[in-house]
Computed example of a mutant assay.
Amino acid sequence: MTVIPAPELEPDATVHEITGDPQPGEPGSWKFARDIAFVLVLILPCRVTRLTERENPYDRRPCPRIWAYDAEFICGRDHQHATRATLFDVYDPLVNTTMPGYGLSLDHRPVTFDPTSHHQLPWQIARAIRTAVIHQHRERLATPAGEIRP
């Protein structure tokens, strides 16, 4: 399993709020973000409260091609989380071209993610996020009362 550090988005990255229902003429990438959120709701007892897409302005000026999908969700009654799935280009010298790279984070901490293929990618992303949420909740339960973790 690997953690790929995702490159930083440019300050002027475009931000789009993604609605729960598809809209006529929306980009296909919004469906991808919605699919991740849908699977999260299926495999975690949670509700998604916000879904956004951020995209670098690579079509307007030279900068890395990066798309970031942010989801805010609540598990149980009050466990709020923020996750980011970042897709970006990685140069592969073996084939002399770029390949897709993926970076995940949960509550601004990197999440180990190594996709088995490009099929069912929203499912694989949601499973990695679910695993990270479970580990985070176990850490909280294992912490003695009054102890503050860094």
Rank of each mutant, 00 (worst) to 15 (best):
M1A: 12
P5S: 06
P7G: 06
A13H: 14
H16T: 14
T19C: 06
D21Y: 04
P24W: 02
E26L: 04
G28Q: 06
G28C: 02
W30N: 03
W30Q: 13
K31D: 14
L40M: 10
V41E: 15
I43L: 14
T52F: 04
E53N: 09
N56Y: 10
D59V: 11
D59M: 10
P62S: 13
P62V: 13
C63I: 06
R65T: 08
I66H: 02
W67F: 09
W67I: 06
Y69I: 08
Y69E: 04
Y69T: 05
E72I: 01
E72K: 01
I74V: 14
C75R: 11
G76D: 01
H79P: 00
H79W: 08
Q80L: 07
A82H: 12
L87T: 04
F88C: 02
L94Q: 08
T97V: 01
T98E: 11
M99P: 05
M99E: 12
L104V: 05
L104H: 04
S105R: 00
L106H: 04
T112W: 13
D114A: 14
P122D: 14
W123D: 15
I125E: 07
R127M: 14
A128G: 05
I129G: 01
I129Y: 01
R130H: 09
R130D: 04
T131C: 03
I134W: 06
I134D: 02
Q136C: 01
R138A: 11
E139W: 00
R140T: 11
L141G: 00
A142M: 12
T143K: 05
A145T: 12
G146A: 06
E147D: 12
E147L: 14
R149I: 08
P150A: 02
P150W: 01
